[in-house]
Each structure stands twice: as structure tokens, then as C-alpha cells.
Computed example of a mutant assay.
Amino acid sequence: MYFAKKIGGLALIAAMLWLTACSGTPEAGTEPKQTPEQTQEQTPEQTQKQAEQTQKHAPEQTEKQTPEQTSTAQSAATTESPQETETSSTGQPQDLEGLPPSVEEAATTVIRSIKNKDMKQLAAWVHRDKGLRFSPYAYVDTKNDLVFTREEVEGLMNDSTKRVWRTFAGSGDLIELTFADYYKRFVYDADFIQKAEIAVNKGLGQGTTINNLNEVYPKEQYDFVEYHIAGIDPSVEGMDWRSLRLVFEKIGEDHALVGIIHDQWTP
């Protein structure tokens, strides 16, 4: 009887130990369940930590991406397509925006080509159909003044042919010269670029020779730019004044050179 009780007690103790083992420490890697009260107490802290971690990592991502994005944006903003030099309907060069040059700009280019004896550049401005007329004095003689085509103008400086360019004022002698000599006497015979007063569609020099520019070249169809030097030698009190008038036909917004008129004091 005693032995049976002892066996029964041991069995009871063994059963209690087994129950204790089953309800004891949870398995490794298994989080203990939390009561609703514990969850409510911990959730704000966990939320704050998660927000701090998000803010901490976000700037790093922005710093990594921003330089590349900025570089791409700057490249796109500063990249420009190359601009091409265009020519107008008259064959004249246009500015970078594709607009024909104004008459002042055209005259500036022409007077520089004249000074530099750049006949190729000068020829590029000559009217394709009407050519270029040279007048040694203010009066434009449409019958006797010589007219040259664009191709002829390009080779004039090296042309040794002597031509009659009308007659000298006062003496009436024939102006029989090569173009190179005519150029020295009746084209660029003074420093018009450095010393001249410039006017557009306005005559500055006035002598005894009749000025019929606006009759031959009506202002509705033509523009002219005058380069005027009031005097070269002070001792002659202005009797050596010079003018050079560049006449352009207006073709829409374009300008084509049709006349070079030289003027000076005459007896």
C-alpha cells in the first residue's frame, strides 16, 4: 500500500513537471505575445523611431540623387543648337538671328571692304541684276557712268584696262584711268572710316555740282549712307571736303549695292 502511494506521488510530480515545461519559456526566435495594453504603450515609441529612421535615410538618398539630376538639368538648360550663317535672297550674309542687316550695317561692311580693297567682299553686295554704278561726282550720269556686274567688280582691282569715267570738273578733261587709279582718286581718297561723319538718307556734303541722287535713286526704293569729311587741310578752309555715298536698293528687308557716288568741292 505504501509503495503504491509512493508510485502515484511520483507520477503526479512527473505530470506537473511536464506541464510546466510545456507552458514555460518560448522557443527561440518566437516573440512573446503582447497584451493590448503593452501594444498601446509601445506603439508611439516605435512610430517615433521609425519616423526618425525614415528622415535619417531620406536625405542620404536625396544627396546621392541630386547631383546627377542637377547636372542633367543644367546640361539640358545650357545646351544650344549650333547656329548657321544664312544668306538673304540677294545673296548677302545675314546676322546670327537670320535677319538681313540694316542699311547701316550693310554700309559698314561695304566701306570696310572698300578700304581694304577686298573686291570679293565688295562684289558680294553688288545687285545681282543691276550691277554697280560708279559716279565720280554728285551728279549721277545714267548714260555715261560706268556700271559693272558682280563678277566684273570682283576682278576690277587687278584689271589694267584704262576706261573713261567721264570728265574732270573744271577742266573738262577725260577721266581716263584704270580702276586702281580711279579708286585712289574717286573712291577711297580719304579716311572715311576714321574721320567721316555718317548720315542715312541725308546729304551732308554740298558743292556746286548738282546732286540728283534722289531722282536717279528714289527714296521709296533706295537707301543711301553718306560718309562726309568736312575738311582735310585746315589751311584751305574746307575747300578739300570729301563725301562718299553708298546707294542700296531695298529688296524687302534686304539691301543690294547699286551705286558708289564720290563727291567733293568743285570750282
Rank of each mutant, 00 (worst) to 15 (best):
T209V: 03
L17D: 06
G207L: 06
A11T: 01
E68M: 06
N212R: 03
E253N: 15
D223T: 04
R133S: 02
D233G: 12
A256R: 09
R133L: 02
L156I: 04
A4I: 10
V187W: 06
I175H: 13
Q221W: 13
T72A: 00
E45K: 13
G205I: 12
L156W: 05
I114K: 06
M239W: 06
G205P: 15
M16N: 13
Q194L: 12
E226Q: 15
K219P: 15
K120C: 09
A4W: 15
M16L: 13
K195T: 01
S23G: 09
D254T: 09
M16C: 15
G9T: 01
T178I: 08
D189V: 12
T266C: 07
I229V: 08
P26H: 01
Q221N: 15
A180H: 14
I114M: 04
K5S: 05
E215A: 04
M119A: 08
D95T: 02
T161G: 08
E68K: 11
V216T: 05
G238W: 12
L257M: 07
F179K: 15
N211R: 14
A28C: 02
Q264P: 01
P82S: 05
T167M: 03
D129S: 14
S102V: 03
D141H: 10
T25W: 14
L99N: 10
E237F: 15
Y217W: 03
I175E: 01
K195E: 07
A76H: 14
T54M: 10
T108I: 02
E253L: 08
